[in-house]
């Protein structure tokens, strides 16, 4: 989902620090505006940016995925906001109002539109280039920049490992191929142990390997 997608488009070639600032600006704009149409416009703009990088399928999937995730927030919002004109009377004094629905929709669009630019930035930026750029232009200590780059590098590896662990447990008879989301979550909990252990081992090995090659000796000039 967040792995680097190689390409030579304008966004790919843009300096990583500029991309970070650009992404943060768009995300901040989502929290400044509270208008559904403006937020929809921002979402459309983000989709066009993804399209320009050849990532329209990913963009569409991400928007739909985020909207699905936010659906729960939307439901909670409309069920708990009681002020304003009544849209639907549920039970007794319990009502759904126009204002509640509007705030719920704004919340949903806001979260979706603010998450997408950062995800897109990560998809069109090499983790090492991002770390180097953050160190050079924003003067972030290189240890932290390196740690950030490594974390980004490990995301797809961990995702692959989790998929393998799930396969292994399904092959043993654990019902991870169930369609029930909640059952899957419950069954997944104990499986985080092997993932955590392998993650810690990998990070420990990477740290030792980096230190053995002189990581930490360099001083800023």
């Amino acid at each position: 989902m967040l792995t680097y997608y190689p390409g030579k488009t304008f966004l790919h070639r843009l300096d990583p620090t500029l991309k970070v600032l650009f992404a943060f600006t768009i995300s901040t704009a989502c929290f400044v505006f509270a208008n559904i149409f403006v937020l929809l416009g921002i979402l459309l703009f983000e989709f066009l940016l993804a399209l320009s990088c050849g990532l329209w399928k990913w963009g569409l999937r991400s928007i739909l995925g985020l909207l699905k995730l936010c659906a729960l927030l939307f439901v909670i919002q409309i069920l708990t906001y009681g002020d304003g004109d009544v849209l639907l009377r549920l039970y007794g004094d319990w009502v759904i109002t126009f204002e509640g629905a509007e705030i719920g929709l704004i919340l949903t669009l806001r979260i979706t539109a603010s998450a997408l630019p950062l995800a897109l930035m990560l998809r069109v930026t090499k983790p090492t280039a991002l770390a180097n750029s953050l160190y050079r232009y924003l003067h972030i200590p290189y240890k932290y920049a390196f740690a950030f780059g490594m974390a980004m590098r490990f995301i797809p590896i961990f995702a692959e490992e989790m998929a393998e662990i799930m396969e292994a447990q399904t092959a043993r008879g654990v019902e991870l191929d169930t369609r029930s989301f909640f059952k899957k979550i419950r069954l997944l909990m104990p499986l985080c142990v092997p993932l955590l252990l392998s993650s810690v081992r990998k990070i420990e090995t990477a740290t030792i390997s980096a230190e053995l090659r002189g990581f930490g000796l360099r001083k800023r000039k």
Partner: peptide
């Protein structure tokens, strides 16, 4: 192949 995928 990797037993660590299985053991938990």
């Amino acid at each position: 192949q990797n037993p660590d995928r299985q053991i938990f």
